[in-house]
Design a protein around this nucleic acid. Structure first.
Length: 464
RNA sequence: GGCGGCGUAGCCAAGUGGUAAGGCGGCGGUCUGCAAAACCGCUAUUCUCCGGUUCAAGUCCGGACGCCGCCUCCA
């Protein structure tokens, strides 16, 4: 079945055609590890995870690369910016590299909790400075750079398609910029490939280069690492919507000039998670929520994942606890159902079910990753009385490969003997119609984290 | 100034010309000693508003109002 993806340059859904049959390379712009990831960041990675899982669901062999930005980049490219890692280091009295490794580890923990498949390759910028220098040299040899004020700049006037991706104003005169002008630039849009001029005397992350000791510009790392691991032509590049105007625009310029041909076939971007009055979540604001904030409040990380899947990745999504509660209840229902199914059928179900629901599900997810509809298909299948229970079980298994909700999580939890004992006591009390004792015992059991389920064929317990 | 998005039930949200998915919540029922769970049923004559095109519009066009993002760093 064909897969359609919305390609940023055209703004339209396009049929996905891989460079090589049966294989896909994906490059995802990762996190700058100077602080914890917030739940908005996580939305972008759940999105790339769904992309990967969908491609694998369709039988593709996926090579997924996600970079770790552990070089401190300036907050802007004039001389005013602060280096984020230096800033974090100062804040926590550690070295920038300690900061980077700590937050990288925390980030990966969050990815795992969100049931995001860890990309096969996660290159660190600091370990690829040589490749970046090589790429800058290549651009220099081809005449796309100039040196000024100690920095090496990319000359955007030499690249015709500059800013096409973002459909931005090409005439600097008409451009309103909020950034202080860097007087060394020939053209306002030019950007730094290599810095030797920097603000801090004791900048601790410096590398030698043909242009002097310094550090790489931000954009060059993705071009260098992406081409190292995926080659000079790449199927899909993903990132947050914020990367379109600057980061990806510049990546395209330097990569296509260096390689001399088209670089990426499909650009996919996820929109913001917003909070309150449509306000985007940002680390600099008070509205910074971490995954830990949610789990400390008693939510499962995958409750949040379910919440994210309920909306399309290309639309702004408003985070509220009310909506998260809805997601939690829904996921719990599915897990309860899945738990019952697995208890009754265990391993006794068709591995590859044949069902129109598979087609429906695939169609939705292949339609630009329409997870809200995919979820709807799952719910319809669950409540379809013409399906056998074992079929539902295998459908759930199958769907969860894409959704990644770990629906069988609460499958077979052993009930402790003391709980069993309380259940028996309660049964005795109920038979003698001593409901006061029975209700007290029920409360007792519930306070220990188990639910009492009275049914036609006796009482059951499950972990709540 | 330029570019772009959004406005669908109490909440989240799908839907890109054919007569309003799904989930949560709420209500009613079955079951239960009661409750919970589970299951079943109901829950938007209507998609911010006003015009237009069309046999047909939430979907296309024009306009109004409201909200938001980007053109600095950001997922």
């Amino acid at each position: 079945m064909e897969i359609f993806l919305t390609n940023t340059p055209s703004g339209k859904k396009e049929v996905f055609i891989p460079l090589e049959k049966g294989k896909v390379g994906i490059y995802t712009c990762g996190l700058t590890v100077y602080n914890y990831a917030h739940i908005g960041n996580l939305r972008a990675y759940v999105f790339s995870d769904i992309l990967r899982r969908t491609l694998e669901f369709n039988g593709y062999k996926v090579k997924h690369v996600m970079n770790i930005t552990d070089v401190g980049h300036l907050t802007d490219d004039a001389d005013e910016g602060e280096d984020k890692l230096e800033k974090g280091a100062k804040r926590e009295k550690k070295t920038p590299l300690e900061i980077a490794r700590f937050y990288e580890a925390e980030f990966i923990k969050d990815l795992k909790m969100m049931n995001i498949l860890i990309p096969q390759i996660m290159p660190r910028a600091t370990e690829h400075v040589e490749e970046m220098i090589e790429l800058v040299k290549k651009l220099q040899d081809k005449g796309f750079t100039y040196s000024a004020g100690g920095n090496v700049y990319f000359d955007t006037s030499k690249f015709n398609g500059y800013r096409d991706l973002a459909k931005l104003e090409k005439d600097p005169e008409k451009q309103i910029s909020r950034v202080e002008k860097d007087t060394f630039k020939k053209h306002p849009f030019d950007f730094v490939l290599w810095f030797t001029r920097y603000k801090y005397d004791k900048h601790s992350m410096l590398w030698d280069s043909p242009w002097g000791g310094g550090f790489p510009g931000w954009h060059i790392e993705c071009s260098a690492m992406a081409s190292k691991y995926l080659g000079e032509r790449i199927d899909i590049h993903t990132g947050g919507i914020d990367h379109i105007p600057v980061h990806h625009t510049n990546e395209i310029a330097q990569s296509e000039c260096a390689f001399g041909h088209r670089w990426v076939n499909y650009w996919l971007h996820s929109d913001w998670l917003v909070v309150g009055e449509g306000e985007k979540m940002a680390k600099s604001k008070e509205n910074f929520l971490r995954l830990k904030t949610l789990t400390d409040a008693g939510y499962d990380a995958l409750d949040y994942r379910y919440f994210l899947l309920g909306a399309h990745y290309r639309k702004q999504l408003e985070f509220t606890y009310e909506a998260l509660d809805g997601a939690r209840n829904a996921l719990k229902k599915i897990r309860n159902r899945a738990g019952e199914l697995i208890k009754s059928y265990g391993d006794c179900f068709p591995e590859e079910p044949e069902s129109e629901y598979i087609d429906d599900f695939t169609r939705e997810v292949n339609d630009d990753l329409n997870t809200p509809r995919a979820l709807a298909v799952m719910w319809e299948a669950l409540s379809d009385n013409s399906l056998k229970e074992a079929e539902k079980l295998s459908l759930l298994r199958k769907f969860d490969k894409v959704l990644g909700l770990d629906v069988f999580a609460s499958g077979d939890v052993k009930i402790p003997v003391e709980i069993e004992e309380l259940i028996r006591k309660r049964e005795t009390a109920r038979k003698s119609r001593d409901f006061i004792t029975a209700d007290q015992l029920r409360k007792d059991i519930e306070s220990r984290g188990y639910e009492v389920l009275d049914g036609k064929d006796g009482t059951k317990v499950r972990k709540s």
